[in-house]
Write a protein that binds this DNA or RNA. Structure first.
Length: 421
RNA sequence: GGAGAGAUGGCUGAGUGGUUAAAGGCGCCGGUCUUGAAAACCGGAGAGGCGCAAGCCUCCGGGGGUUCGAAUCCCUCUCUCUCCGCCA
């Protein structure tokens, strides 16, 4: 959420920002509700002050042996009026909060203004495109031939988009998870979390998935739970409704499976591991002060890049423009891997700075230099998502005979296996 | 699934209808002492909202009720813990 005071005082700027982001929301309605709320609050509080005063005097009267019945009746009437106004206030506050939940974050000043993904500038790149003296084979054919996965049987037990890894494919999945967690915990200073894989609606609202993006998620209505679309949800919300009494930043990393309905993507990227409903991911999450959040965001992005550098994979970093920015993010870098058989860049990580937007929704605070509670800044990014990482490893490292060379850093994690096939 | 106990401030923990925003302890901030630090001592300090301000209002897990007045009494929900059963 944005600060209601900020919305009140910068209404036009907020409206302009929502337009730049292609977010359709009625900012004026929120401002109007805010005005109504404050008017009711002022009036009802005056009444309450009056009632409190008289109630105290009743206590005194009883002590002095006087009869308070006449005054009691009068206060009872005030109480009824207060109850009615409190009801109205609660209703207005519910609408106001609901409205505010649909207002996206303000893009950072440094975020480029643009319409869609075509306006995302490339920030930097690492490595080079590999030259092949044969036609690179797509990962789905490589994997089938090597017995690394069996998507047909995965579809049989769950549906299409639920990949099934097998043999060396399953081992590679496990090796990559282990490698990335070790890197982030041992070299980058993150503390590992193994969180719940389902979250409640409160947590989903805290990070911004709800209420707007309900249809992107699976849900288990009978228990009020949602299988997580990203570890960002459980890991960020673990400090919800807390005033953190510890040193910042806090750095966490977590492996989780991720579940996404991919509503609206039907028929797109249907083959192989390009776009799936369930995938593995190692996530990084930071809780920082406003002073250090930009720096920590840059560092987190580098931590994600390190994974790819160690694996020797050609990648580029792009910055999302306002039109392509995620709902809760103020600034975001995407990291993309080159996949030769797809002949395109594949997103493997989104590193976002949410500033205090999620912290305000989830009510995560710390004590600033004055000892006053203030909202933390949250930052997160994949470090990294597995499916497209696996695609890049397979397609970039393939040999003419259909075998795949494994990056050296994975050898120990693969029990000494250096090559698939 | 059955039985019981509990939920109070950054943490811990008193408090069973009327100066209780809430004792005590820990931690925190300021000061005294010290070459410096620690200890000791003194003092400060809950959170949110409305208001230019003075000030006022709300908040003791969530919701509802009783009452002139609720942390305190009643109902309900959620969560946590213990024991039993079942089970990975």
């Amino acid at each position: 959420m944005l600060d209601i005071k900020f919305i009140r005082e910068n209404t036009e700027a907020v409206k302009a920002a929502m337009q730049n982001r292609n977010v359709d929301v009625d900012v004026d309605a929120v401002v109007e509700l805010d005005g109504r709320r404050r008017a009711i609050v002022a009036e009802v509080e005056e009444l309450k002050a009056e009632r409190n005063k008289i109630s105290k005097s009743i206590g005194l009267m009883i002590k002095e042996g006087k009869d308070p019945e006449a005054i009691k009746a009068q206060v009872r009437e005030m109480g009824d009026k207060i109850t009615a106004m409190d009801d109205e206030l609660r209703e207005v506050e519910t609408w106001l909060r609901e409205g505010m939940l649909y207002i996206a974050n303000m893009p950072s000043d440094s975020t480029p203004i643009g319409k869609d993904e075509n306006d995302n500038p490339v920030i930097r790149s690492w490595g080079e495109r590999k030259e092949f003296d044969f036609e690179p084979v797509p990962h789905w054919d490589l994997g089938d031939a090597l017995g690394m996965f069996d998507f047909e049987r995965g579809a049989k037990v769950a549906g299409s988009g639920f990949p099934l890894f097998k043999g060396k494919g399953a081992k590679l999945e496990r090796a990559l998870i282990q490698f990335m967690l070790d890197l982030h915990t041992e070299e980058h200073g993150y503390t590992e979390i193994a969180p719940p894989f389902m979250c409640n609606a409160t947590a989903m609202t805290g990070t911004g998935q709800l209420p707007k993006f309900a249809e992107d998620m699976y849900n288990v209505p009978i228990d009020g739970l949602y299988p997580i679309p990203t570890a960002e949800v459980p890991v960020t919300n673990i400090y919800g409704n807390e005033i953190l009494d510890c040193e910042l930043p806090i750095l966490h990393t977590a492996y989780t499976p991720c579940f996404r309905r991919e509503a609206g993507s039907a028929g797109k990227d249907t083959r192989g591991l390009l776009r799936v409903h369930q995938f593995d991911k190692v996530e990084m999450v930071k809780f920082t002060t406003p002073e250090t959040s930009e720096e920590e965001h840059e560092k987190l992005t580098l931590d994600a890049e390190k994974v790819l550098q160690k694996l020797g994979l050609h990648y580029r970093v792009i910055e999302l423009c306002t039109g392509d920015l995620g709902f809760s993010a103020a600034k975001c870098y995407d990291i993309e891997l080159w996949a030769p058989a797809q002949d395109k860049w594949l997103e493997v990580s989104s590193c976002s700075n949410f500033k205090d937007y999620q912290a305000r929704r989830a009510n995560i605070r710390y004590r600033n230099e004055d000892g006053k509670p203030a909202f933390v800044h949250t930052i997160n990014g994949s470090g990294v998502a597995l499916p497209r990482l696996v695609i890049a490893i397979m397609e970039n490292n393939q040999n003419a005979d259909g075998s795949i060379d494994l990056p050296e850093v994975l050898w120990p994690y693969m029990g000494g296996i250096k090559k698939l096939g």
